[in-house]
Design a protein around this nucleic acid. Structure first.
Lengths: 152, 152
DNA sequence: GATGAAAAAATTTGCGG
DNA sequence: CCGCAAATTTTTTCATC
């Protein structure tokens, strides 16, 4: 968890692994003209430093029938209801992200649903049943042309 | 890319790999009481079906000095400027996600920055230099209490 | 389809520069 | 800190049920 200043080699390794975490170390070694052992050492260091948090498979939600992605701006009646509201939102599996924000909304959430009908169901029968919510505003995402991670 | 109806075993494997893509197949095999070969076959099938898209390391942007996360609602002067605007936004590494949305904004983007100063710089010297943009509205995220993927 | 063992490949460790 | 190579672990294949 300490600070560790990454160098160019670390950066290159990170880039490669962010694209494909299963790239063999031997291949990275060849690509960056170092040994596989060195790649291993660097990766371990970045894990230790808390830079690399884990490795996950990424799935195509569409292939699993989740077609609708939307953002919902939520306004609360009272700011003090924030923790309780988050807890309730966490119980709805369709809510995949939540942000506590400054600006127009108190909470900003991302919801994945199977269809417009399903989204409507989530909105009416789940989200809008939360007492503390005053109003919501929905932005349906038709397309996500950019989707990547920050690249230091 | 065809349709493939996943069963409970597939779902369990998916859950495990979404949490940690490096879980050895032998361990999953023990956990789900099947053989390692079966795990392998199922994973390959889900790859073939386009359900598993790839594996990526997840990094902690904070550890790399990216402290500020924000959303920006963008309004365009003309809807026809959409493709060109996306192209320009793509050139700014701080723009990590972009959505084409219905509702209050034409485009909705997520931006990661090193600091409030850096964010201001991105806003003024990058995003707002795009001719086609009429107005923007910024929501700064103070916290992200929920962050997960959809779990079929 | 699933299994389990054998073969191939990749990761990890430790010694020596 | 790096490289090399041995030791270990994991993935992949395949004949068989």
């Amino acid at each position: 968890m300490e600070n560790y200043q990454i160098d160019n080699l670390d950066r290159s390794i990170l880039h490669a692994l962010m694209d494909n975490a299963r790239t063999p170390y031997a291949e990275l070694a060849k690509r960056f003209a170092v040994s596989a052992g060195t790649i291993h050492v660097r990766v371990e260091k970045m894990k230790q430093a808390g830079i690399i948090v884990g490795t996950r498979v990424s799935i195509d939600a569409k292939q699993l029938g989740y077609d609708v992605c939307c953002f919902i701006g939520v306004n609360l009646k009272h700011a003090r209801d924030y923790p309780a509201t988050i807890e309730q939102l966490e119980g709805f599996e369709e809510v995949v992200e939540a942000y506590y924000t400054t600006g127009n909304y108190s909470i900003f959430i991302k919801v994945m649903a199977r269809s417009i009908d399903h989204l409507q169901d989530v909105l009416i029968n789940k989200i809008q049943t939360i007492e503390a919510i005053q109003s919501t505003e929905t932005l349906i995402s038709l397309q996500a042309p950019i989707m990547r991670e920050v690249m230091p």
